[in-house]
């Protein structure tokens, strides 16, 4: 168990086959089926547990737990869309253990933090003993359980630019029950809405309805310049149908997931118009 990043490099250097885990809520849930117990737990590395703001950038260390994020004043103030998602992630115990870096590296199609981080344009800092690179979250995850980490690399932290003037941060997850549920479908949305109700900028991302987070420039662009009304949202339904590619599994059918993905956007109506609350 390394306590400093240098300890970690030493461990990885001598043991590149080791599997790295943080909170263990995913890796150790598969404990009995793990083919190797060659594990390194990085949850106690101090510098990976920091949250700080540097000008317009927020840094979140990869081993920051979901509970710490929820408690963080910086995150509450600047990243409400992430807070909304964290509130419905797992259970209190899972949030006390699980980390944001783990949620990213696990690369589950249903990872609850992924759609919010996607719309926030999260940039990942990836380090090895002698290198440091930055990559956008959308380029990091290739598919279910697949990320672009090399054997000698770890996800060091996440950078988010907060100089964004979205005034609506929306997140909704549909699961089979409220808590401890794996999402059937989820939607994270950032909107910049003018006083007259015109969408000036939009970023939407869906979870659990494709091999990875689904986002489409076409959808975002189609919303810009429109008023936030049912009629204008209806116009993008075909684009959503085209963009998502859900699967049938034990939680829901592909057909149902598609339907929910479409219906989720109509929740945005609550932010528009003058007669809404």
């Amino acid at each position: 168990m390394p306590h400093t990043i240098d300890d970690l490099w030493e461990m990885i250097y001598g043991n590149q086959q080791a599997m790295i885990y943080a909170g263990g809520t995913d890796v150790l849930a598969r404990y009995r089926s793990l083919t190797s117990r060659n594990l390194i737990c990085i949850e106690d590395i101090h510098e990976l547990k920091e949250i700080y703001q540097q000008d317009n950038l927020i840094f979140i260390g990869s081993c920051v737990t979901h509970t710490r994020l929820l408690e963080s004043k910086i995150i509450q103030k600047h990243l409400p869309v992430l807070i909304h998602a964290l509130k419905v992630l797992g259970s209190p115990q899972i949030r006390n253990m699980g980390t944001i870096g783990g949620n990213i590296c696990t690369a589950s199609p249903a990872g609850d933090t992924l759609p919010p981080l996607y719309v926030l344009g999260a940039i990942l800092e990836i380090r090895s003993i002698d290198s440091k690179r930055f990559t956008a979250l959308k380029n990091f995850i290739h598919g279910p359980g697949k990320n672009s980490l090399q054997k000698d690399e770890v996800l060091y932290g996440i950078w988010i630019n907060i100089k964004q003037d979205f005034n609506i941060h929306h997140y909704e997850k549909v699961g089979q029950r409220k808590m401890l549920a794996i999402a059937i479908a989820s939607l994270a949305a950032l909107l910049k809405l003018s006083e007259s109700g015109i969408i000036e900028d939009a970023r939407l991302a869906w979870g659990s309805v494709g091999p990875k987070t689904i986002a489409s420039e076409k959808i975002n662009k189609a919303l810009i310049g429109k008023t936030l009304t049912e009629a204008s949202l209806k116009l993008i339904v075909p684009l959503i149908r085209e963009a998502v590619s859900p699967i049938d599994d034990i939680r829901a059918s592909a057909h149902y997931r598609k339907m929910v993905s479409e219906n989720l956007i109509f929740r945005l109506l609550k932010y528009g118009g003058h007669n809404n609350d």
């Binding site: 168990m1 737990c41 209190p92």
Partner: peptide, 15 residues
């Protein structure tokens, strides 16, 4: 002081 699941932790993490 925080609740955690002991089935998802390994002995080394107790140190």
């Amino acid at each position: 002081g925080e609740s955690r699941l002991s089935c998802l932790m390994l002995a080394a993490q107790l140190e």
